[in-house]
Design a protein around this nucleic acid. Sequence first.
DNA 1: TTAAGTGTCATATTTGATATAATACACTTA
DNA 2: TAAGTGTATTATATCAAATATGACACTTAA
Lengths: 129, 129
Amino acid sequence: MDSIQVGDFKFRLDLSKPLYEQVLQHIRQAIARGDVQLGTKLPSVRDLAQQLKLNPNTVMRAYQELDRDHLTETRRGQGTFITSNSETVEQVKKALAREAVIAFVSSMKNLGIDRSTTESFLKEVTWHE
Amino acid sequence: MDSIQVGDFKFRLDLSKPLYEQVLQHIRQAIARGDVQLGTKLPSVRDLAQQLKLNPNTVMRAYQELDRDHLTETRRGQGTFITSNSETVEQVKKALAREAVIAFVSSMKNLGIDRSTTESFLKEVTWHE
DNA sequence: TTAAGTGTCATATTTGATATAATACACTTA
DNA sequence: TAAGTGTATTATATCAAATATGACACTTAA
């Protein structure tokens, strides 16, 4: 259990990818899953940085990308808040799902694996929700 | 069409990932797909490097990883040859497919998307072989 | 008004993986 | 022997990521 709980969010960081990207993904997924209430405030840049032992700039980069996707809104002097627009969340969620599907299908096709075989592979996976 | 044909292999390199990794993937996928005959010789390290305008060390790194997976065998002074063991190829192919499936399922679960919804997404994809 | 907490910006520096450059060595084959 | 193989070594260059540090503008509550 090398994951860190900060507010409503759980983070598990490693060296496989850029840290700012991992922070971004964790928060984005929490929002997409509905693990956090819409409209609530994210931890402050400095807070999160301190708790994750990261540089504030690294956290800020993640927050700015969330803003770009309109998953968050930043109010100067107040903080960064999760959007209250559930439709935006739904759109982003679908977009991310689509990306994942495209990447997956591409991988399988690159291996020369056809549709039905891919579906078979998928059926073999035990799916703990 | 910014892809380069070298022997039986087609390469399309970009800046999204390490070059040695892309070279590795292209060759690995060609073998897995059965696009190249088992037992045949890969382009020499120097040849491939020259044609792809890469450093020989970069190509060598890709070749060494292929060797590690036993997809190729290197004979000193002769070159690097694709394995003749079709079972090995089949194993690697399955392993790569499994990896892709695992990663995909993980992504979908991280988004809070269940199995049946995932299957629906998959059905929406047009699958040109 | 003030102080603390917010996001933001700018600049410089460090770090680590990637890639290149240039040689050299050992082996095989024609 | 010469040309073609893979391999190893050392040095250097490059670039994105991450850090360090300090400053600024705004909001809120004391």
